[in-house]
Amino acid sequence: MDNLKDKTTEKWIKIGIFANIALAIVKGWAGLVSNSSAMIADAMNSTSDIVSSVFIFVSLKIAKKPPDKKHPYGHYKVEVIASMVIGLMLGMLAYQVVSTGIRIILRGNYSTPGSTALYVAVLSIIVKEVLYRFTYKAGLESNSPATIANAKDHRSDVLATSATFLGILGARMGYPILDPLASIIISGFIAKMAFEILMEATGQIMDESADENKIKEIEEIAEGVKGVVNAYDIRMRRSGSVYLIDMDIVVPSYYTIKEAHDVCELVREKIFEDIDNTKEVIVHIDPS
């Protein structure tokens, strides 16, 4: 990531941290004064967001550290670890929220929430949607899995708080069971987002290959270089925010070692130039 993208990403992570602190306090207060279990569950969600956002911010700092003797390939995968931690935290939160909602329903101790919780829910939806849009854009531009996971967390909050709003509104209209039911719905959104984040992070930990379109693009770039007969056995994996590429190319058998090496360097230069966020390209040369 270049410096501008780094700064933009870090800026929105910082804004997200302060926004989550404010929302956790306001939601907790609104849940207590309005006697809303759904809003209290939402406040718990915002509290976990504070921890995950701080963890992401730290992981981005570590990921930028240069390679060293213990980590010759860099520290990029710390972002993947951060994504997995976020996924696990969301999973635990989903369990806690759903168990609380079910317990309230089984006990039958419903209550009608106050109107304050409704206003806070609307405020939270607006703030979180803005955070999602800008953080997701920054994550895509920097190719940062941790930042994208953080953005998806914001979007899950939008959906969750929307359920909170509907639950509180329904309870105030004479259906108090809808408030704890909203808590259960919230847990479903949180669990779904946790699963998606964990699956994506697991794919990177397991060095899952990039999609076929990327592989095809690299093949076309390589075969467009003069002297390349064909390119094959292209392997591309993601390490945090960067791509690592291994491939084979065939050059004419009459090429000298220097000529073959020059072709190899041209292929590497073109890939670095055309494929964003490429950190390493290893090219093996075969004679035709």
Rank of each mutant, 00 (worst) to 15 (best):
D2H: 06
N3W: 02
T8R: 15
I13V: 15
I17L: 10
I17N: 08
F18W: 15
A22E: 05
A24K: 02
I25P: 04
I25Q: 07
K27W: 04
G28M: 09
W29C: 12
A30Q: 00
G31M: 06
L32M: 10
V33S: 00
S37I: 13
M44Q: 03
T47I: 12
S48F: 02
I50C: 05
F55V: 13
S59P: 04
D68A: 06
K70W: 02
K70P: 00
Y73E: 09
H75Q: 06
M84N: 05
L90N: 08
M92W: 11
Q96M: 11
Q96T: 13
R103W: 02
I104D: 05
I105L: 15
R107S: 11
S111M: 04
P113I: 06
Y119N: 06
V120K: 01
V122L: 14
V122S: 03
E129M: 09
L131P: 01
T135M: 06
T135K: 08
T135Y: 09
Y136P: 01
G139L: 03
L140R: 14
N143R: 13
T147D: 07
A149C: 06
N150K: 03
K152F: 11
S156C: 06
V158C: 03
L159F: 15
A160V: 01
A160L: 00
T161Q: 05
T161L: 05
G167V: 05
L169T: 13
R172Q: 15
P180W: 08
P180M: 09
A182T: 01
S183M: 03
I186T: 10
G188T: 01
G188I: 00
I190N: 00
I190S: 00
M193T: 15
I197V: 14
A201R: 03
T202W: 10
S209N: 10
D211C: 03
E217K: 14
I218V: 15
E219P: 00
E220R: 15
I221A: 10
I234Y: 07
R237A: 04
S239H: 15
D246C: 02
M247R: 09
I249F: 10
Y254N: 13
Y254F: 13
Y254D: 12
Y255F: 15
K258H: 12
A260F: 09
H261L: 08
V263Y: 06
E265K: 13
D274S: 12
I285D: 01
